[in-house]
């Protein structure tokens, strides 16, 4: 085997993983005998680390709503969201009154607010629902048959004591769940299905500083989210059910989630 001469060009190739494996040892020993080249290599490695660090934070930023809308074709979001929010505040009030959830005194301040944490939670929940509820075979990561593990795993990841609500009385059976990114944190998604194959999902995150509640629709005729935010957690129930039914399911789910959190 002939031993080739190395040059500065090889420093870049080595750094970028393009140096053939069999040349690596010869390269390393060449570098050891060339202090100037060695220093250059060390410097480039440090600069690359700084470059990566400088942009690493971008990966953790939530995807801006306008980009998701550009992709999912929700150009009419604003107007639709306003109309549905208007309706939904009334519906949410009914849900809460009917549910008798004493102590929940945030009022109907979700109404008429601009893009806030509530919109973001609802949009994330709807986007997740749209993607995963449509999946037949890969809708969940952990199936309902492994419910104990599902609850423990999601609770640990999300940082909340999560108990999957029993929605059998509303006609829904748990399909399973998955872990998702949400804002700077994580969210648990629980998927349910009724006898006709209609699916709804629960989206729960430990990230919230606001108090708000309401309903939200990202797209006309798209699925709707009923959400609650409180300090330390947020929850949205998403589905394409008739409003009264979605409200009833959401009420039951929310009550059980709250009880689970407190248990």
């Amino acid at each position: 085997m002939t031993r080739r001469d190395f040059s500065e060009r090889d420093i870049h190739m080595a750094l970028d993983g393009e140096l053939p494996g069999e040349e690596r040892m010869a390269y390393d020993s060449w570098l050891e005998t060339n202090p100037e080249m060695k220093a250059r290599s060390v410097r480039y490695i440090a600069d690359r680390a700084a470059l990566r660090a400088a942009f690493a934070g971008v990966m953790d930023e939530p995807v801006p709503a306008r980009l998701r809308q550009a992709l999912l074709g929700e150009a009419t979001v604003k107007a639709a969201a306003w109309r549905s929010r208007w309706w939904l505040s009334a519906a949410a009030a009914v849900v809460l009154v009917a549910g008798g959830l004493a102590g929940y005194v945030a009022g109907i301040d979700g109404v008429g607010r601009g893009d806030g944490a509530d919109d973001q939670l609802a949009e994330q929940a709807i986007a997740a629902h749209v993607i995963y509820a449509a999946e037949k075979r890969h809708a969940v990561e952990v199936p309902a048959s492994d419910k104990d593990h599902l609850q423990t795993w999601l609770s640990n990841r999300v940082g909340l004591k999560l108990v999957a609500p029993d929605l059998a009385a509303e006609g829904f059976q748990l399909v399973g769940g998955r872990l998702l990114p949400a804002g700077h944190g994580k969210a648990a998604m629980l998927l349910y299905e009724d006898a006709k194959g209609e699916r709804i999902s629960l989206f729960v995150t430990a990230e919230s500083a606001d108090k708000a509640k309401g309903t939200y629709m990202a797209e006309k005729d798209g699925p709707e989210a009923v959400y609650w935010l409180d300090k330390g957690y947020g929850c949205a129930v998403v589905g394409s059910l008739p409003r009264e039914r979605l409200a009833a399911v959401a009420k039951s789910a929310y009550g059980q989630l709250l009880a689970g959190l407190a248990s």
Partner: peptide, 22 residues
């Protein structure tokens, strides 16, 4: 929502990082 859009959605953070560096 189809599979293609779901896959593209997953690439948005990387696209944003690249765009931000440009």
């Amino acid at each position: 929502m189809n599979e293609k859009k779901a896959a593209i959605l997953g690439e948005i953070p990387r696209l944003r990082r690249y765009a931000r560096s440009l």
